[in-house]
Simulated scan of single mutants.
Amino acid sequence: MKEQVTIKWHHKLSIIPDYVSYILYFLIPVFLTLISLLLANFLAKDSLEKTHKIIKKDNGEEQTVKTSKVIEVEQANNAFLPSYLGYFFVALSVPYFETLIFVFLVLFIFTFFSQTLYFNPLFLLFGYHFYYLTTINRTKVFLITRKILKDPNDIDLPNLKRINNFTFIDIRR
């Protein structure tokens, strides 16, 4: 049996309209996402900054140029939306709160231990974008950043935070 749960748990709160509960239910994950972004400042530092490369010209002169460590950029903003929509519809169909918590914990454990991506769709509300970057070593990494990345040659990311070996977040604008 599905129940409608609102914040009218106390008789003094009974005058509050139901939509206030729904707004609060939405703001809780947004607030937790904001806290996770603040905690990201304490992650280990890393970078994908350009390196200096010396090029010899035909006339014998040497020229120093900066080259990017990234050779390919692929946008990943929409890659996981179907999965999260699937979770949403599963949550709507679960009849009991205990079952919902159990399903959520199982999904959380599998997602956490897979350690592949940390895609939080609420990051989109804070202006973040998601990218797959392929480095010069042919390693594919996942990047969360506010920057718009298009050309691999222009990518210079000196202030990344490492979430795991293949996932990074760029806190700065």
Rank of each mutant, 00 (worst) to 15 (best):
Y118L: 13
F119L: 02
H129L: 12
D151G: 02
P121Q: 07
N137F: 04
F108R: 01
K150W: 00
L149A: 12
F130L: 09
L105R: 02
T134F: 02
F112V: 07
T145Y: 07
P158E: 06
Y128E: 05
Y118C: 01
K147Q: 15
V106A: 14
P158S: 06
K140Q: 13
N153T: 14
R138L: 07
K150F: 10
V106N: 04
N137K: 14
T116R: 08
N153A: 15
F123Y: 15
T145V: 13
F142S: 03
V141I: 15
D151Q: 14
T139I: 04
I155D: 10
P158F: 04
L133T: 08
F108D: 02
K150P: 01
K150L: 13
T145K: 08
T135P: 09
I136G: 01
V141E: 02
I136E: 11
Y131S: 06
D156L: 11
K140W: 04
I136H: 09
F123Q: 05
L125P: 08
T134I: 06
L149E: 09
H129P: 06
D154R: 14
L107C: 08
D151W: 01
F113R: 02
F142Y: 13
G127C: 05
Y132T: 01
L133S: 07
T145G: 11
V141T: 09
Y131A: 05
P121S: 12
L157P: 04
L133R: 10
N120K: 08
T145C: 06
P152A: 05
Y131I: 12
R146C: 03
Y118T: 02
Y118V: 08
F113N: 08
T116A: 01
P121A: 11
Y128H: 05
H129M: 07
T111F: 00
I155N: 08
N137E: 14
Y132V: 00
I109S: 10
L149Y: 09
Q115W: 04
K150C: 03
F110K: 05
R138C: 00
F108H: 06
T116W: 04
L157D: 06
T134Q: 12
I144C: 11
I109M: 11
K150R: 11
R138D: 14
I148V: 12
N137T: 13
Y131N: 10
F142R: 05
F142I: 05
L117I: 14
N159V: 01
R146E: 05
K147H: 08
Y128R: 06
